[in-house]
């Protein structure tokens, strides 16, 4: 029973991430797109943590931690690029 609740929450979070794609495509300036990408990353991490319960595997959470670290590095790199450093 609880598993299906987690599955529904994960579905809604995934739909939110898909909705954010609109701003990623349409954003008038580049920082807007970076903001959208960053938020999508956060939602994907939340989604992975919930899917760990649905599929009953702890490995998903480890993947989420690594994804968080990589997305942080990616955001930093994009910020430097927008600033004109790289």
């Amino acid at each position: 029973m609880t598993d299906s609740i987690f599955a529904w929450a994960a579905i809604i979070t995934g739909l939110c991430a898909l909705l954010m794609m609109g701003r990623l495509v349409a954003g008038p300036t580049i920082p807007d797109r970076v903001v959208a990408l960053d938020s999508i990353n956060t939602l994907v991490i939340a989604l992975m943590i919930m899917l760990a319960v649905v599929y009953d595997s702890v490995v998903m959470v480890d993947v989420a931690i690594v994804y968080a670290a990589l997305s942080f590095v990616g955001t930093m790199f994009l910020a430097r690029h927008v600033e004109g450093g790289v």
Binding site: T29, I30, P31, V34, V35, D38, T42, I45, I65, A68, A69, S71, F72, T75, M76, L78, A79, R80, V82, E83, G84
Partner: peptide
Amino acid sequence: ALLISNATGAHAIARSAHRS
């Protein structure tokens, strides 16, 4: 990891947006 990386990332984006 989420708490630290999100706050720092937001700060980096804001700074780069203003500088650009």
